[in-house]
């Protein structure tokens, strides 16, 4: 089924349930959303951020957004980085403390992100392209997690 996407499944609107005319009318949006998930979680050129690390960070951000079930799905691909899915792990054990702190702030305290947060990553030796990669992962998840939260409410309000 064309509309078997992470966003729809996580909101309980996946395969096997008629998604309704409104969602059918935006089918291309949901298809592109799924392509965007693949682009941030499993890119061909992942830079220093492996697919497993990306899955762990995605799981962590899902937890910060109260989406435990989706966090569990992402964490299944997190391999050696699985511990990072727990927001109480500061990443120091993996040598990733600056990355983890940055991802938490961008995800959950966006308004207070400022220039020193970027210069701090640069000072930690992270290349500009790899900072952009972290932001794209974080930013996509912010979008998808809110789509899921919104769809769940939509489903109840417009059954």
């Amino acid at each position: 089924m064309a509309l078997d996407t992470t966003a729809l499944k996580s909101a309980g609107l996946g395969a096997g349930r008629a998604p309704g005319a409104a969602i059918e009318g935006r089918a291309s949006i949901f298809e592109m959303t799924q392509e965007a998930e693949a682009a941030v979680l499993r890119p061909r050129d992942c830079g220093p951020w492996s697919h497993a690390l990306r899955a762990a960070l995605a799981a962590r951000i899902a937890v910060l957004n109260g989406e435990e079930a989706l966090a569990g799905q992402y964490a299944a691909d997190a391999g050696d980085y699985a511990a990072l899915a727990d927001p109480s792990d500061d990443g120091a054990g993996q040598g990733l403390a600056p990355v983890v702190a940055f991802m938490d702030k961008v995800a959950a305290d966006t308004r207070n992100v400022a220039a020193p947060d970027i210069s701090g990553l640069q000072a930690a030796g992270i290349a500009d392209a790899d900072i952009v990669r972290l932001c794209e992962l974080n930013a996509f998840l912010a979008y998808q997690l809110r789509v899921i939260a919104g769809l769940r409410l939509l489903k109840e309000a417009y059954p």
Binding site: A21, A22, I23, T110, I118, I131, C135, A142, G150, L154
Partner: peptide
């Protein structure tokens, strides 16, 4: 608001969760 309108609102507000985390984070 009908269902299609609310869906578009969910999508547009969520999309800016994405856009803001690029614009506001990567530049001044």
């Amino acid at each position: 608001l009908d269902e299609a309108e609310v869906l578009d609102l969910i999508l547009s507000a969520s999309l800016f969760g994405w856009a803001n985390r690029l614009m506001h984070v990567l530049g001044d």
